[in-house]
Design a protein around this nucleic acid. Structure first.
Length: 484
DNA sequence: TACATACAC
DNA sequence: TATGGTGTATGTA
């Protein structure tokens, strides 16, 4: 199909918006509606906190049990802890931010009445921006996102087949992954182990073994490289590939190519991978989730398929949209990527042109089609941090800082980098984080230098906040120079 | 430049 | 009893 012009999309959008469906109407906010928005905002702290306590990954995936019930149980199990109090503070801060934004929206909407000349001018500008974005759309590549299925868990299953079919999690204080059986109970990566056990009393936990995951990752990546030697590894268990050339050279269709890739991974490693194929990295990444686990999904390479694919997609599913952005967009009335088009003038008014641009990209399904490995020279920083039993003993804190400084120096040496900026990272016993940094006149890389600088920063903090108790400390070096 | 926040995995 | 570590990008003053 020909690429859909923005005007055509606009027409499609307004025709699908029935005037008798008030909830989907574009919108000046009537007094009644306004009150409803405020009420839901005032009611929000509790609701949003409940949801927040579900953890950052709870919103990304669907669930077997009722998520509201799970959130309630997490909330009950967490209540009263220092971590919980910190989450509550953060949630309140975001609530205030959203309220301020809604007030700004009210003000702007009064100043720029819907359908007035100024409104229409903004609409015209937004449409021009969409046309410009549309003209950059690249449909010529088969971009692939490979995502290993419950990767750490799958490696553990290989080691101990008796875990098969059981609810288990990997990790000590915090789960780094949960088996599909455990996920059905609401257990998630990033969740405190004791919360996961409260949700799933028969949960089995196994310690994590990074060495094994790195080794398994190397095996899998070397199989991926047969299909694109220039792949971009995104993490231990994810990679982007451009298989356009591979398909052309071998005269094989892309679906068969991906089926073959998956077969090789399964046969050679015993692990399964889910794959998305699309014209760009964003669509491929979203696609790899569609037929998970052990499945593949391909999006047709036409503009209208890309736009249709995004239309009903909740914005939260877009990579880069997390819990906070989700709340901001929700307050504006944006739940799905399709809503972005309908609300583009409001978005421009309240969030500005910069934010409108990336949101229009989501709406249109436009993103980069370039896949290349991360380059050494793009490295920005090297750091180490660790958590311990909270203490306010200065001697002990300096000891712990020394460990971080030593490890950073070790890594810098291994990687052949030196850096100009040295950062001290702290997390207080109440979970509030802060950083202090100092740019040096020359480059540093030695443990003694990193320790001396961060130590001065820490001692200063201890002086101005007497009795400060910390639960985490770390050091980081940035503004790097490659000395390889 | 210094610091905080948001996000991914 | 009890909630991780590493890195990037971006906004603000």
């Amino acid at each position: 199909m020909e690429s859909l012009s923005v005007d055509e999309q606009q027409a499609a959008s307004s025709s699908s918006t029935s005037p008798s469906a008030p909830d989907t109407r574009p919108t000046s906010i009537s007094p009644q509606k306004r009150r409803r928005v405020e009420d839901s905002t005032n009611a929000a702290p509790h609701a949003s906190l409940l949801k927040r306590m579900g953890g950052p990954s709870a919103g990304k995936a669907g669930l077997a049990l009722d998520q509201a019930e799970i959130n309630r149980r997490i909330y009950e199990a967490s209540k009263g802890s220092k971590y919980f109090e910190n989450e509550r503070r953060n949630d309140e801060r975001i609530t205030r931010k959203v309220e301020a934004m809604l007030a700004r929206m009210d003000e702007r909407l009064r100043a720029v009445p819907e359908g007035g000349p100024e409104w229409l001018a903004i609409e015209k500008k937004a449409d021009a921006l969409a046309s410009k974005l549309e003209s950059t759309r690249d449909l010529s590549r088969h971009i692939v996102h490979c995502d290993m299925d419950q990767f750490y868990g799958a490696v553990e299953l290989k080691r101990d087949p008796s875990l098969k079919g059981k609810a288990f999690g990997v990790g000590k204080g915090v789960l780094v992954t949960a088996s599909y059986e455990a996920r059905a109970y609401g257990c998630r990566s990033g969740m405190a182990t004791y919360i996961a056990e409260a949700l799933c009393p028969h949960l089995i936990t196994v310690p994590n073994d990074m060495q094994a995951y790195v080794a398994a990752s190397q095996d899998v990546m070397s199989i991926f490289r047969r299909f694109d030697s220039n792949l971009a590894q995104a993490s231990l268990d994810e990679a982007y590939l451009d298989v356009t050339d591979h398909c052309r050279i071998n005269g094989v269709g892309v679906d068969d190519t991906i089926a073959e890739l998956r077969r090789q991974v399964r046969e050679e490693t015993g692990l399964t991978v889910s794959v998305g194929v699309a014209p760009n990295t964003m669509l491929a990444k979203i696609g790899s989730d569609k037929n998970k686990p052990d499945g593949q999904f391909r999006l047709e390479a036409t503009a209208s398929d890309c736009i249709d694919f995004m239309h009903a997609l909740p914005v939260r599913k877009v990579p880069g949209v997390g819990r906070v952005t989700e709340r901001i967009l929700q307050a504006l009335g944006v739940e799905t990527c399709g809503d972005i088009w309908r609300l583009r003038v409001r978005i421009a008014l309240v969030l500005g042109d910069g934010d409108l641009e990336w949101l229009l990209r989501y709406n249109l399904g436009i993103a980069s089609s370039i896949v290349e490995p991360g380059k050494r020279e793009e490295r920005k920083s090297v750091g180490r941090e660790h958590t311990f039993q909270p203490t306010n003993d200065p001697e002990r804190l300096l000891e712990l800082l020394r460990e971080s400084a030593d490890r950073v120096a070790e890594d810098l040496k291994k990687l052949d980098f030196v850096g100009k900026r040295v950062t001290l990272t702290c997390k207080a016993a109440d979970f509030q984080r802060f950083t202090r940094d100092q740019t040096q006149t020359g480059y540093v890389s030695q443990a003694d230098d990193i320790f001396r600088i961060t130590r001065t920063l820490l001692e200063h903090e201890l002086k101005i906040q007497p009795g400060l108790s910390l639960r985490l400390i770390g050091a980081r070096v940035s503004t790097l120079k490659d000395v390889r």
